[in-house]
């Protein structure tokens, strides 16, 4: 196995294109190095992208917040503007792993690892984040939602690299929230993850809403009909009850070592309801 540390994206793409199979991108390494411990792991090339200019930076541009692919999640919480704009995204990213993992793990890695239970992915999908992709055939921008296509599978072509995640500037009176269920208080993979983004009208009613459910299907589930139930309401109890039931219905989980189908469906509704209330309250606190 070779280890390479290119200084430009072009070089990184070139290296990956030359070794399309059995090559890996290394940013935080918190998933890749775990896989490398396995006796069966075999690879020809690891491309460390951390020394490429901009990969470790958060920039605020006309397009919104551009978060480099190698920005460790701990750094997100240190960016006051980002926390103020998208608390739901930052809190989701900050739930990944321990303090030690936070120093290394990245949202881009979380997205490209394509794990169904990834914490930051429902939050990114709920805010309709985009990703900037560079590759041998040129650059493209696609919704974050379209990167994972199934457990461990992405839509990236050989040689392509996600260079950054772009979060739009939130509309006025927008709130976001992410809640997950884990059996312990820390260190677990989400059994259920729910992200909600709401924008309020001047009268306090919900103008628009987007909901994303994680760990309850092979990909993030976006129950638009459930989200629509919130629009035009002030999240009264009756609306929330219907919303909760709709989110439970939308969930299509499996039984595994982390939870049962019945548990996950029920808790998906509970947490979606709670996240909606938090997002609604946060929307009221913003200008």
């Amino acid at each position: 196995m070779r280890y390479e540390r290119p200084e430009t994206l072009e070089d990184a793409v070139g290296l990956l294109s030359a070794t399309p199979e059995r090559s890996h991108i290394l940013a935080g390494g918190t998933d890749l190095l775990v896989r490398m411990k396995n006796d069966d792991f075999d690879a020809d090339l690891v491309v460390d992208i951390k020394r490429i200019a901009g990969m470790g930076e958060i920039a605020r541009t006309d397009a919104g917040f551009v978060i480099g692919a190698a920005v460790p999640c701990a750094k997100l919480a240190e960016d006051a503007a980002l926390v103020a704009a998208w608390p739901g995204v930052v809190e989701a990213a900050n739930l990944i792993g321990s303090t030690q993992i936070q120093s290394r793990c990245t949202m881009t890695g979380n997205l490209c690892n394509a794990g169904p239970a990834a914490d930051s992915v429902p939050a990114l999908v709920a805010v309709d984040a985009r990703v900037k992709i560079v590759g041998p055939e040129g650059n493209r921008i696609i919704p974050a939602r379209d990167v994972p296509v199934g457990p461990g599978q992405t839509s990236l072509a050989p040689g392509e690299i996600v260079a950054a995640i772009v979060l739009p500037e939130p509309a006025p009176q927008t709130g976001s929230a992410y809640l997950r269920f884990i059996p312990r208080t820390e260190m677990d993979i989400a059994v259920v993850g729910t992200a909600v983004v709401l924008t309020r009208d001047a009268d306090g009613t919900v103008a628009s809403a987007r909901v994303a459910l994680g760990a309850v299907g092979p990909r993030v589930i976006v129950p638009d009909d459930a989200a629509q139930m919130l629009v035009g309401t002030t999240l009264d109890d009756d609306t929330l009850a219907r919303f909760e039931a709709a989110c439970s219905d939308a969930a299509t989980p499996i039984d595994d070592k982390r939870g049962t189908v019945a548990f996950r469906k029920e808790v998906a509704g509970v947490l979606a309801r709670r996240a909606a209330k938090i997002a609604y309250d946060r929307a009221g606190e913003t200008q």
Binding site: G29, T30, V34, K37, D48, T99, Q100, S103, R104, M187
Partner: peptide
């Protein structure tokens, strides 16, 4: 695998699991 923290070291001012750093 980064789950126990017994290998914790500082890397450029942040605490990391050295088992998950090359």
């Amino acid at each position: 695998t980064g789950d126990c923290g017994a290998c914790s070291t500082m890397l450029d001012g942040r605490i990391v699991c050295s088992c998950l750093v090359l």
